[in-house]
Design a protein around this nucleic acid. Structure first.
Lengths: 248, 248
DNA sequence: AAATAAGTTTCATATTATGAAATTTATAAC
DNA sequence: GTTATAAATTTCATAATATGAAACTTATTT
């Protein structure tokens, strides 16, 4: 492992929505590194456009990241194909739809689209949640034993009132997911939020992602509960078909 | 400058929409580096989630970039505030709207939204164009002498039939932009494309970005030419107000 | 089954990053 | 306007680390 590259990554990760602008000393302090080392790294990153130097000699994330990000999107053909289908889903209900993929024991949201009237929800494109505590994550765990193994190794911890923290209970829940073909998260990840997710299959039949619809418990369990469930499943199936999966 | 960090950046930049998946040897070849060196760097980047290792031992861009990108967005409050206003703009015409900002002699597109029926255009979020050859770029040059100086130093080259390649002619054009408050690019950047841009001002009155509408020459110069111009200017003004700029 | 090509690992060496200290720059206090 | 303070930046000798040739492993093709 190349240390300076690792350190450069840590520096980039220091920036967040809460702290979009940082000085050299702040960064050095956060990472426990010498200010001169961070300065060398920061200068390099500025030169590459990964960071930008402000007039008052502080730093922010640079445009290079926009460029790179764009190519992340491009390469995931799931992305282009899914957007119109997910838009169609949220046009028919009130809530927020996500597409999640598994990475290192967590679910990463690669897409998030909300309907106009949706109540805000604490996720964003690129953000992560423990897989076992989300509807999308549980779908991915239900159909990928490797993912489940990795998740168990990392341990389960309470995220919200109903988070499943027991391995046996989780396995039971995942069996249920496989039986019905969708997963539900009811107050498992964020208090007051209910979500329902269904699997997206690649041409080879592997569950590579999951799409969900999330909203307030009251709305999601309301009168059109059944319709929401059918729509989420239909959306997932349509995306799978777009990706070349042929139902058997 | 820290060499390994620079090299890591080059590796990330190897990936594109045309080549989303690359092997170690390919990357080493592209960059003229030894495969073992690139492998060390690639492994590190994989560990950090910047790259991902495919099943067939090839590599693609990783989720970390999504995470980082998100924070680039967050920090530019211009982004959140502008989106609804730009959406409103494209809803009334057929074309593609951009917001561009200046960086190192070029305009970087930080936002791109197209109306449903818009003809495709060769830009994407994060992509760059020479400032002097675009409507957004010329707005930024017209109101920022530093930008102009930097641009002139880098030289002007023909991009499309009408690109301004003469410094004096460029200065005249920029004067006109200041006089009328908007800029036009007619076949200056891409053949067949006509765009009109107006300045976005920060609370302090500095021109920090430009918004444009681009489309086929025939449409943009058609009957609602005047209305388009007024709408672009109005959109720019509204965004400026959102950013705290108070007209004098 | 052999051949080929690419990915990966190892390790001695040369290169390069490191951090203490000095210097410069900007900001705050007087 | 001067001094004080804090942070950013630069320098440079030294310690740490990246480098690439070569060996090895894995996968694919003939």
């Amino acid at each position: 492992m190349i240390e300076s590259v690792k350190k450069a990554c840590y520096i980039i990760s220091c920036f967040s929505s809460e702290e979009p602008v940082l000085g050299n000393a702040e960064i050095a302090g956060k990472l426990g590194m010498s200010p001169s080392t961070t300065h060398h790294l920061i200068s390099t990153l500025c030169n590459e456009g990964v960071l930008m130097r402000d007039k008052d000699r502080r730093y922010r994330l640079g445009w290079k990241l926009l460029e790179w990000n764009n190519n992340v999107m491009f390469q995931q053909d799931i992305y282009d194909k899914a957007i119109p289908l997910v838009k169609d889903l949220i046009s028919r209900f009130i809530g927020t739809a996500h597409i999640g993929m598994f990475d290192k024991g967590e679910v990463v949201f690669v897409l998030k689209i909300s309907s106009q009237e949706a109540s805000p929800i604490h996720t964003y494109i690129g953000s992560r949640k423990p897989a076992y505590a989300t509807s999308t994550g549980k779908v991915l765990l239900a159909y990928n034993n490797d993912y489940l193994k990795e998740t168990i190794e990392r341990g389960l911890s309470q995220q919200a009132p109903n988070t499943i923290t027991n391995i046996e209970k989780l396995k039971e829940d995942l069996k249920k997911v496989r039986d019905v073909g969708y997963s539900i998260s009811n107050n498992e990840n964020s208090t007051g939020t209910y979500a329902i997710a269904a699997p997206i299959l690649s041409y080879s039949g592997k569950t590579i992602a999951a799409v969900n619809l999330a909203g307030p418990v009251s709305y999601m369990q309301g009168s059109n509960q059944h319709m929401i469930r059918q729509s989420v499943i239909k959306t997932a199936d349509s995306i799978s078909k777009e990706l070349g999966y042929i139902e058997v």
